[in-house]
Amino acid sequence: MRLARYLGYRLLLAVPVILGIIVLNFFLIHAAPGDAASVLAGESGAATPEYMALLRHKFGLDQPLSTQFAVYLLNMAHLDLGYSFRNDSPVLELILDRLGPTLLLMLTAFVVAVLLGSLLGVLAASGRNGWRDNLISLASLVAYATPGFWLGLMMIVVFAINLAWLPTSGLDTVGADNEGWDEVIDIARHLVMPATALSLFYLALYARVMRASMLEQTGMDYVTTARAKGQTERRIIFGHVLRNALLTVVTMAGVQAGNLIGGSIVVETVFGWPGIGTLAFNALQSRDLNLLLGIFFVSACLVVVVNLIVDLVYVTLDPRIEI
């Protein structure tokens, strides 16, 4: 019950964020050079004059800005993100069609980054300043500086072209018509490289955060108490310190949700992964600004949802937090 009330409160907090994105989108439409109708129509010149006239009328582009904003707001409230002429389909439909693969990619990258990153952080902290710690720190520094898309290309060169272990691109083998487990395995094989390329940066980040957090927790009184009680080091680390240190990683993971979406755009482009990122790249190629605006809106909403979930995970993980 209290959780439900907390959820409602958090949803209320999300409203200004969504409103902010709509304002930002509206501002960008008008910041673009040329007529707002040509922005909304997508690819300039592709839309018919009738459609342009319809757009002008529908968005009240001959009305004052305040009216235009009200109309825009109303459209967004109805989740009417406009129509993509290039793709001959409503923007929302296009995006929702591509949401699945992107969520699969992001979730995989996210889970790998949090689990493996935390594990490496614990390993580094438990052998502080030893060879293991130095090696992990060094590797995370390099991972920090590596552009994800370039890493993806290099993996294609090594694992797809030279070793032929993994497929270069796509979500599944075209025309294979696999079913059941075969299909799952096929998709998993396609997922390995994009997920690795996307997660490496965050893996390094969480390893660093986890290490620092573990070291901070080790100095706490409860650790001294546990040690005085004669508990084993292993139990102190995994039973006490790890649980507390994980909270910092969870917080960080929520903050990074937006960046994960940005990263997936370039990574999807590299691997031809049929998600929102590839859709955004195609929209860029065809200068379909309205589709891009829709992608920005949906991805920002996605971040809000992820943050909400992270918050809920946080309160369940940490009983001390009053909700």
Binding site: P16, V17, G20, I21, L24, L28, A31, A32, P33, V39, V255, G258, N259, I261, G262, G263, I265, V266, A280, L284, R287, L289, L292, L293, I295, F296, S299, A300, V303, V304, N307
Partner: peptide, 19 residues
């Protein structure tokens, strides 16, 4: 707000709008 929204997507959008 600016920390929450997907930064790279916004950057793409700004460049696309400004050419």
């Amino acid at each position: 707000f600016f920390q929450t929204i997907p930064a790279f997507v916004l950057a793409i959008l700004i460049v696309a709008v400004l050419s």
